[in-house]
Simulated scan of single mutants.
Amino acid sequence: MRGQLWPPLLSDFFASVSREATNPLKPKYDRLYGYEEVTLPKAEMVTWALHEYR
């Protein structure tokens, strides 16, 4: 049961960390084309890399 619950929790955690990291940048860079589509996935990739780095 735990194996089924863990991946969704981890992906939700990474998504929330990405939002928290990019929200302060939104007032300055939101007017740029593609900000929403590009910034969140990149922040999530950085979060995954930090998680894997041990």
Results as ranks from 00 to 15, higher is better:
residue 45 M to V: 14
residue 19 R to L: 11
residue 45 M to K: 12
residue 8 P to R: 01
residue 18 S to N: 02
residue 51 H to G: 07
residue 9 L to C: 12
residue 21 A to M: 08
residue 27 P to C: 08
residue 2 R to Y: 05
residue 33 Y to S: 10
residue 25 L to T: 06
residue 16 S to N: 11
residue 16 S to A: 15
residue 27 P to G: 08
residue 33 Y to K: 15
residue 1 M to S: 10
residue 51 H to I: 11
residue 42 K to P: 00
residue 29 Y to V: 08
residue 24 P to F: 01
residue 30 D to L: 14
residue 34 G to N: 06
residue 40 L to T: 04
residue 44 E to R: 12
residue 41 P to F: 05
residue 50 L to C: 06
residue 18 S to Y: 03
residue 30 D to A: 15
residue 52 E to R: 11
residue 54 R to N: 09
residue 31 R to A: 07
residue 33 Y to L: 13
residue 27 P to E: 04
residue 40 L to E: 06
residue 1 M to K: 10
residue 19 R to H: 09
residue 14 F to H: 01
residue 37 E to R: 02
residue 47 T to F: 05
residue 30 D to C: 08
residue 16 S to C: 14
residue 1 M to H: 09
residue 48 W to M: 11
residue 1 M to N: 09
residue 2 R to G: 12
residue 16 S to G: 08
residue 35 Y to P: 00
residue 53 Y to S: 11
residue 25 L to G: 02
residue 11 S to N: 12
residue 30 D to E: 14
residue 11 S to D: 12
residue 21 A to Q: 01
residue 52 E to Y: 14
residue 50 L to Q: 04
residue 20 E to H: 11
residue 2 R to L: 12
residue 37 E to L: 11
residue 2 R to A: 12
residue 2 R to S: 07
residue 17 V to M: 02
residue 11 S to P: 03
residue 48 W to G: 03
residue 28 K to E: 15
residue 15 A to T: 02
residue 25 L to D: 09
residue 5 L to D: 06
residue 14 F to P: 02
residue 9 L to K: 06
residue 5 L to T: 08
residue 51 H to A: 12
residue 51 H to V: 15
residue 27 P to A: 09
residue 26 K to S: 10
residue 9 L to T: 09
residue 40 L to P: 01
residue 44 E to W: 06
residue 17 V to R: 00
residue 37 E to V: 07
residue 47 T to S: 11
residue 39 T to R: 00
residue 51 H to W: 13
residue 5 L to S: 04
residue 10 L to T: 14
residue 36 E to C: 00
residue 37 E to T: 07
residue 28 K to T: 15
residue 50 L to F: 05
residue 19 R to N: 07
residue 17 V to C: 02
residue 54 R to G: 10
residue 14 F to S: 02
residue 48 W to K: 13
residue 36 E to G: 02
residue 51 H to M: 14
residue 46 V to E: 00
residue 43 A to E: 00
residue 1 M to W: 11
residue 39 T to W: 00
residue 10 L to P: 07
residue 24 P to R: 03
residue 43 A to M: 10
residue 9 L to S: 09
residue 23 N to V: 12
residue 14 F to N: 01
residue 28 K to G: 11
residue 35 Y to A: 06
residue 9 L to Y: 04
residue 38 V to Y: 05
residue 30 D to S: 14
residue 53 Y to G: 04
residue 53 Y to Q: 10
residue 33 Y to E: 14
